[in-house]
Simulated assay, not measured.
Amino acid sequence: MPLHYTDCSFAYRAGTPVLDGLTMDLPQGCTVLLGPNGAGKSTLLSLGASSLTPVSGRVTLGRLDSVRRRDRRAFRQKVGWLPQEVKAIPALTVREQAAYVGWLKGLSKREAWDRSATALDRVRLTELGQRKSHELSGGQLRRLGIAQTLVHQAEIVLLDEPTAGLDPVQRGVFRDLLAELSGSVHFIVSTHQTEDLADIYETVIVFDRGRPVFRGPVSDFFSTAPAGTPHERRAESAYRGLVRGEV
């Protein structure tokens, strides 16, 4: 089921809304969210994860409303959240950190510990389970971040710039992992990187100034590029034709 925004508004400063009466759904499958800095992508995902609360409007998943207190725990168990910065907890091992996040999401300690093993296996971190989390590389820490969202068996995982700061090899490993997991989990990935869209994603949403200016299959996104655009430049050209630039 999609994550649905109904008449959502949010502002960090009075009189300057980032989102203003937005109504849209984030589709099933693997979706890439593109847009310039300041377009509202991080705010959109933070609201979807219930990390932020809309000033007005609702964010719902089926009958669960993120704003409604009695629904919040169940909502957060179904929606995983990976912000731009994944923080290691120095005193904990990799497995302990994954289990700890599951416990924070409402699992019992035993259930969180048991599920952490499966989650680490799914992101290929089992061998590093006993290592201190602060000793992980940047790419490994991002994979731990995904494991943290899988411990509580999230149905939808929201990722904000998950490959920022990673080297090309780490980005490749991360993209492969996303492709493997997308058959069982719905992903919404915010990024500035337009390469390899067709290899990973099913849907493209281009977000600009608090509004979606494009939504559709990857092939339709490519078709907005001007005729004669070289194959390797189609994504970049299509994107530049849809947005007005950084806010």
Rank of each mutant, 00 (worst) to 15 (best):
L3A: 09
F10Q: 00
F10R: 00
Y12E: 04
V18W: 02
G21K: 08
L22N: 05
M24I: 13
D25V: 14
L26H: 06
C30S: 10
V32E: 09
L33V: 00
P36L: 12
N37F: 06
A39S: 15
S51T: 15
S56L: 05
R58P: 11
R58M: 07
V59Y: 08
V59L: 08
S66P: 02
R68E: 11
R69C: 13
R70M: 13
K78D: 15
E85G: 11
V86H: 02
V86W: 00
K87W: 12
A88H: 05
A88T: 07
L92Y: 03
R95E: 09
R95M: 09
Q97E: 09
W103I: 12
G106K: 08
R115A: 11
R115N: 12
T118C: 10
G129T: 07
E135W: 15
R143D: 00
I146L: 14
Q153G: 10
L158I: 08
E161Y: 01
T163E: 07
L177H: 05
L178H: 08
A179N: 15
H186I: 09
V189T: 04
A198P: 15
D199K: 15
D208K: 05
R211I: 06
P212M: 01
G216V: 00
P217D: 02
S219Q: 12
R233S: 15
A238G: 03
Y239L: 04
Y239G: 04
V243F: 06
R244P: 13
